[in-house]
Design a protein around this nucleic acid. Structure first.
Lengths: 111, 111
DNA sequence: TTGACGCGCAACCATATGGTTGCATATAAC
DNA sequence: GTTATATGCAACCATATGGTTGCGCGTCAA
């Protein structure tokens, strides 16, 4: 999978507030199961499990089956892709800003 | 608007691949109109305009009416909120990692 | 003034999405 | 062996979302 589609999946996964708070919860606990998390949320276990699955698909969480429970833990690596995207957009914008300032300076000189 | 909901809107806006590529396009050009962008995309102007509006609502773009056209430019500030969130999640995860290593070390010492 | 250009708004549509219920399966405990 | 716990899977539902078409309104130019 190329970097582009990886970023797509990460941002899409993080796009839902519920999923983001799940990532937060798992990060704070170190690891957690769908049942644990659902116990403190106004949604069913299945809903949480579905979202955890989506986050795992995006590579943000890692699922580990331990006995009869599946524990999820954070895999922060994909987040770097997201940061990279943000940085690259910021850089492109900065370049345009610099170019704009330059052309304004030229216009001022020519005046 | 508090930081939390601001982050919500930013990530939600960035969640759609189409919107993200619009941000990229605007960042590269410095500024652009819905008509300009739609000309190079397989969608209608209205679709682009709607997405640009969503991005503007999220604070990622700024709309400026100039005569009969509306130019959009990038406002990178909200992106920092997104990075902050990512960093904070990473930090929380790191803390748990450190705590885990510490308890493992303790267990080793006790052995 | 008249026509072209660019926008914004509203209605409408197909599909995706998050959530729920119901049930079957596997593991741990008694 | 039997019961309780934890999951996974599938069907189903309401709503959100992205996109389209149609249309009316300012704005610029001939």
């Amino acid at each position: 999978m190329d970097a582009g589609s990886r970023v797509d999946r990460v941002f899409a996964a993080l796009g839902d507030p519920g999923r983001r708070s799940l990532v937060e919860a798992v990060a704070e606990r170190g690891s957690a199961t769908a049942t644990e998390l659902a116990a403190e949320l106004p949604v069913t276990r299945q809903a949480v499990a579905k979202q955890l699955g989506a986050l795992a698909d995006a590579g943000l969480l890692q699922a580990t089956r331990a006995g009869r429970e599946t524990r999820y833990s954070v895999t922060p690596a994909p987040l770097e892709d997201a940061v990279d995207w943000i940085v690259s957009v910021g850089a492109a914008w900065d370049e345009r800003l610099v170019a704009l300032r330059r052309s304004l300076a030229r216009a001022t000189d020519a005046r």
